[in-house]
Design a protein around this nucleic acid. Structure first.
Length: 258
DNA sequence: ATGTCATCTTAGAGATGA
């Protein structure tokens, strides 16, 4: 089974890249972020034509998350307790409980949006309280946090910046401490599996990136491969994020239990 | 390291966010 996450930075602008990518990559489940469209404007038809059921939560201009699944999609939820923006979507997709997240950016350390980001991560952690890590659960998306200094191209360039502070990292680590595992993709071009490169200043060309998109999975989910699809960041009108693609499998007992 | 890209407002360049 193949699962992927991708911040597409507008599904409207990215549709000419997304549709052929879905055909070539053939993921069974995809978590999308930054769709930047209202529910009524989501391109359901061309995606359904490729065999996917869709759960979308969209504000319109900003944010927006989706789950695409061709192995079933039930028990949809887009409400994250106490949070108003469209940044969270969960559904049962076959044996997997899948969540797509678009964690708030934080903007700057003195901006109220930074406290909002920490609060949002706490709300995300709270959703795990009643769940059991022996079941197959995946939370994936754009976390807007680099977990370690090695997850940015040069930690010296991030003094006083968001994405690398201890409270943000602790917010994500709380998910790992609960029992989710950080599925590290094998590196692409460089020695580190970056997933985001700023559009400006030739950052992608120089591989000056950040690893801020994560796939988190519970231990029963066996990972046979995980890679960053750098090709999707190249060429004409790419997103500023690359997809993370993960191949997973389960034991027969787990297939039954879920 | 702020060099790009996407969207909305409202008709064409500016504001906003990343």
């Amino acid at each position: 089974m193949r699962v992927a996450t991708w911040n597409v930075n507008s599904i409207g602008a990215r549709l000419p890249r997304l549709l052929p990518w879905l055909e070539e990559t053939a993921p069974d489940v995809v978590a999308l972020q930054e769709t930047k469209c209202a529910d009524g404007a989501f391109p359901y038809l061309p995606i359904a034509a490729l065999g996917y059921e869709v759960l979308h939560s969209g504000d319109g201009r900003w944010n927006g998350v989706a789950i695409l699944s061709r192995i079933g999609l039930t028990d949809p939820t887009t409400d994250l307790a106490g949070q108003l923006e469209a940044r969270y979507a969960t559904a049962q997709c076959g044996p997997l409980r899948v969540t797509s997240v678009y964690v708030p950016n934080g903007r700057s350390l003195d901006d109220p949006h930074y406290a909002y980001k920490l609060n949002w991560l706490a709300s995300l952690r709270d959703t795990l309280t009643d769940l059991d890590a022996v079941k197959p659960i995946m939370i994936m998306g754009d976390f807007n946090v680099a977990l370690t200094d090695d997850d940015v191209f040069d930690i010296g360039a991030f003094g006083g910046s968001t994405h690398v502070t201890e409270p943000e990292r602790a917010g994500v680590r709380a998910l790992l401490e609960w029992g989710l595992v950080d599925v590290r993709a094998r590196p692409g071009k460089g020695d580190r599996p970056f997933t985001y490169w700023d559009y400006r200043a030739g950052m992608f060309h120089q591989d000056l990136g950040m690893r801020i998109d994560y796939v988190l999975a519970t231990p029963p989910i066996s990972i046979s491969d995980a890679y960053v699809d750098r090709d999707a960041r190249k060429g004409k009108l790419p997103s500023d994020h690359a997809p993370v693609v993960v191949d997973v499998s389960f034991g027969p007992d787990l297939e039954r239990r879920s």
